[in-house]
């Protein structure tokens, strides 16, 4: 029940996805914007989020994470 409620909240507001907490605020905002734009045109968002999480886990700079996410986004 709690998990379902959490998933509903995340689905309604992707910016609240707890996975984004691993990103610094500036990178967080830019990645959310890219992910939202991908979602808006029906592109899958999970690969983009995973790319950002990989960068965060590997302590990459925010600029590099954003660049990697943009590269992963299908045009």
């Amino acid at each position: 029940m709690i998990l379902t409620a959490l998933l509903l909240v995340i689905a309604q507001n992707p910016a609240q996805d707890p996975r984004y907490e691993r990103l610094d605020p500036d990178t967080h905002a830019r990645v959310v914007a890219i992910v939202d734009s991908a979602r808006a045109v029906g592109l899958p968002s999970e690969p983009l989020i995973h790319r950002a999480l990989e960068g965060a886990m590997k302590n990459a700079a925010g600029e590099r994470i954003v660049a990697a996410v943009l590269t992963s986004k299908p045009s």
Partner: peptide
């Protein structure tokens, strides 16, 4: 220390400077 899997294909994009 990040290590790639020696028994699997390497990931193409490596922007983060460590192998995947």
């Amino acid at each position: 220390e990040w290590r790639a899997d020696p028994g699997a294909p390497a990931a193409r994009d490596d922007e983060f400077g460590t192998p995947s």
